[in-house]
Amino acid sequence: MPNEVVQTALASATADVSLWTLFMQAHIVVKIVMIGLLSASVWSWAIIIDKSLLYTRTKRQMDRFEKVFWSGQSLEDLYQTLSGRPNHAMAALFVAAMREWKRSFEGHARSVAGLPGRLEKVLDVTLSREVDRLEKRLLFLATVGSAAPFVGLFGTVWGIMSSFQGIAASKNTSLAVVAPGIAEALFATAIGLVAAIPAVIAYNKLASIASQHAMRLEGFADEFSAILSRLMDERG
């Protein structure tokens, strides 16, 4: 009888302990945790890549737009070229404000009196919409960053719990019996950390970039509304 125990213990010790077998041997709860964490990792990396591309693109476009905007080109011409496809946040602000401006001067009834107020409103709405678009889904990264370790820990605790139940059931305390269970349980925490660490780092980085862009947009909106109100006063 002891010989059998030893042999089974050795057999399980020398068994395949690759990641795949670790995963397949795991308890169903641990499996779900692992899969969830894996998909969270996939999704958070998708967001990271997406946002990184978006921010670099946005920055480049804003640089180009500001260069054009401050080059002394006529606002009308600029509006004509951009009105069709305001493809970035600053252009969207510009187009929204210009549209409101032009509508106010169209037709016979010139409604100039409330124009500054309306411009503010339009710029605010557009600004908040654009900032929302920039920061969209960043919160998911924050959630993954803070929750994934706990989820992984849950999987670990569950796995260790079930492996201790295995000890209780088999009445064999050999490390070889316990080790695979603990290894697969710890694997859950490992996946949790793998998902969480990049998410936290990327969230901090992307959030700061997003707030920089938002401030830049805000500054542009203020400046542009100041320009428009000066023009309005000049036209009298």
Partner: peptide, 26 residues
């Protein structure tokens, strides 16, 4: 683009992990 890139990256990393660290040697 992000989703695809992320999925591809994860699959690649997992495949690498499965192949290159299959068993940590007894």
């Amino acid at each position: 683009v992000g989703l695809v890139a992320s999925s591809v990256g994860h699959v690649a990393v997992l495949a690498w992990a499965l192949i290159s660290l299959p068993s940590p040697g007894a």
